[in-house]
Amino acid sequence: MTARQLSKIAKRVGFWALIVLIMVYAVFPFYYAVITSFKPSSELFRVELWPSSWHLDNYIQILTEASFLRAILNSIVVAISVVFIALLLGITASYALVRVRFRGRSTVLLVILGVSMFPQVAVLSGLFEVIRGLGLYNNPAGLILSYIIFTLPFTVWVLTTFMKQLPMELEEAAIMDGATPWITITKVFLPLMWPAMATTGLLAFIAAWNEFLFALTFTLTDTQRTVPVAIALLSGGSAHELPWGPIMAASVVVTVPLVVLVIIFQRRIVSGLTAGAVKG
């Protein structure tokens, strides 16, 4: 009896130890970045788990730098525009794909799936040509255009999954009442689709906010860059004198909003991610 109790206790202890380990593993790198960002450059190279003094120098340096503020603004504009465009094109397309049976429907779905699996590098030179042809090189608008390639297929895919779950009767009733498809979408479906749209919008926002390859390739000057490029290029120069304090401060500034969003909306995000994947 006591041996059994002992092994039960041991199991519980082991279980909680594992949970603590997972927590530490998941959170520690971010925690370490946060405490580093509050250290003055003189103490930067003393390894410690809790800083002996807190300073805002790094934040002041980063937030008074015009190019970094500009990069944040660019990132916000790009991400919000991308979300808006992807949702607008995505909701109409997924309505057509879910509610109307027509020839070529599965082909369209297959194309969408194919595009979502695209390696971005595969279109880099072609897209570069398009963007330059449209006069959008070194312009956030060029990024908005290019981000459609990974946000739109995904948005259509997830919205399609969500829309399938809505009862068909709703729409039949609307048709009986003589509603046009556009009215059906805006007056019947949109109100019901808000949760799904919030989820997909959030995921698209995160994807656009984090994108690096296109942002690095299609912009040239400090004033046109987005945040990931700005942070990656902060290091620049020689490999030995990296400004770690400001890099960590900048990282925290651009990450905290995302982490807060993710923690608030974790349920929605999980359902969005799984809806996008389970269908694949």
Binding site: N210, F212, L258
Partner: peptide, 21 residues
């Protein structure tokens, strides 16, 4: 929620954080 944090952090940022560690 804690487990989701690494996923939410931009790849560039996580690369920099680890480069520092």
């Amino acid at each position: 929620a804690a487990v989701l944090i690494p996923w939410a952090i931009p790849t560039i940022v996580s690369a920099q954080m680890w480069a520092w560690m």
